[in-house]
Design a protein around this nucleic acid. Structure first.
Lengths: 192, 192, 192, 192
DNA sequence: TATGAATGAGCGTTCATTCAT
DNA sequence: AATGAATGAACGCTCATTCAT
């Protein structure tokens, strides 16, 4: 693995600190001074890496969204049949949401509040193109319901955010069987 | 309909203003001074109706949650069979989420951020009991998958929040057929 | 004793409430609303009896000061010799300061802070004239030191405020012997 | 004398401003904004040096009390006989109270109102130990009356607060002879 | 690059005072 | 005479941002 420069280390520390503070107390309880302290950096230093607080939040969002998409499609092979392809992606997404819980919580926060510029949100969505392509193929092959992708997303990926929150609050415990179950509902939902 | 007293009118105006500001800009961008201005009231007046900002937010949350539950079960008849009962509730919920969009967005905000006391959240959940009872009956009758209610909720009600957000951003347009479609996915998801 | 009119009862209740709140928490923790509540009166009503908060405080001060002076000279007989006359007044003052502790504490507060208009303070001092006259006579007779009355007051009456505070804080307990002792110091201090 | 750092200069300016405003208008009329302005500093800056308003007041109190005690015992020599020792301390105290008038007025304010935490008051009292020790010795030698130290303090040190207030209001003018006189009353008061 | 003291606008909240009833 | 809801200026305090070092 490549060495990280001092700059990169600091930048990463700031991002980690931002995520941690925002998910635990919300945007309004994540002051720049605390972010700085948690990243072992002076408040002024943040402004060497980010234009301002909004920019920091936007950048954190985009980087996580990118990492999320990378993870989602890490094993994906476009030659798989539709169900196998979907299973493949869905389990990677579930794995991310339920294991990289801090990052996933941050995304959930952002997607449900006006924390993030609408522009950055649009930017972030682009990364999901392979999933949209797969669904389109599935619909052409008649194995997936003929719904717009928003509905398909709402009933397959979005529910994971709810389960993630419930897990975080210790309302539920998640194991292998639990996830298999959840996948079944996702697939039954959209399959033709 | 009964006349509202001056007090009730003011209280309602404050609640409306709070909802409107929070969903458009988030908790941290809904200062008491703006809430007051939007409700055509002096800042000090808010404190005649609510103890402090947190209390205001909690009360708004609980009142909306109650109204939401009332709406959800307004037509519900416990003698209906499971599928009909579920359809009945689901459509009422969909109606609320997609028509009372401001209130529904507010609930979504609250459920995805630490804006609300955990106590108030717990309080708010109680209202959904009839739906949980229905699911239990469905499972006993073998018509609904044997999942914990969190999963059932995640795949039937929670997706509506996503569609609501998409509608709000004008990414999608929702009509009768669209909702019928969405219901189909919800039911296919949880049915045995 | 004469019946009090409703007005007088309310006015007295307001004065009592003011004293009680000021001595327990200071001027800045005695809001008009609390004074009103403690006097079982509406905030607006205060302004029927007093012009504003400053006027209320001034009036309370003057009335207590008058009651204090009345008590101080209640038994005084100008035909007594100087030492007896002084003893007479001093014990009455001590009695007031150590028994009417709320009122005395209020006076102490006022005399050591800028709560009260300088005019009202000047007004309040006038009531002590008989004591000043006695001292003058004592000086003419050569039984009291030839000091200005400020010094005489500082070494005879003012020390009682300190003892009163100490008693209030339960640092000391005061009994008959204690007071006799205190008088001895007062007299030794000013006697020729 | 050592140079003061910029920080120390600001801190001192804040303390001076606090004293000045409190003694002229009382605690409730010494808002942080005025303190800041008088110290030529922004309101936010106060909070770099003090935790909050109460902490500012407490710290000012304790620092003045310490300076006062230092002054009081600056010339004191425990080998002096009781009367000489007492004279020594008393004159130093008088010098402080009548010359460092702002600081002394501040202490008087604090000691007569609930401005200060009871803890800080207790802390502040400790500094007077040498005077208490001297009085004890005086009592053992039979030169000082057998009273509790509260009484001795009330008749020797406390009267100076009254004279200080009178001087401040220009009711009296104080010169060397005046102080010599005052000392005589103090000593006559407590001597056996 | 990096710092952190300093800023000052803006926050949530209080409270002396008013006025329609 | 009496109320108490309503006001809004002013409070204590926070925090995103700047800038001299």
């Amino acid at each position: 693995m490549q060495e990280l420069s001092k700059s990169e280390i600091k930048r990463n520390a700031l991002i980690k600190a931002t995520i941690s503070l925002v998910i635990n107390n919300g945007f309004h309880a994540a002051p720049m001074s605390k972010i700085a302290k948690m990243a072992s950096v002076s408040p002024g230093t943040i402004y060497l890496y980010f234009e301002n607080k909004q920019d920091l939040i936007n950048k954190v969002y985009l980087e996580i969204k990118t990492a999320f998409a990378t993870h989602a499609f890490a094993n994906y092979d476009a030659t798989l049949n539709v169900q196998e392809g979907f299973r493949n992606i869905w389990f990677q997404i579930a794995d991310y949401k339920l294991m990289q819980i801090e990052e996933a919580m941050f995304l959930s926060h952002c997607d449900n509040t006006p924390m993030i510029d609408e522009d950055s949100k649009k930017e972030g969505i682009k990364h999901l193109q392979p999933l949209l392509d797969l669904w389109k193929r599935g619909q052409e092959e008649g194995v997936i319901k003929n719904c717009c992708p928003y509905i398909l997303y709402a009933y397959t990926v979005y529910p994971l955010a709810f389960l993630m929150n419930a897990k975080q609050k210790k309302d539920i415990t998640i194991n292998e069987e639990y996830i298999q179950n959840a996948f079944l509902l996702a697939w039954d939902s959209i399959k033709q």
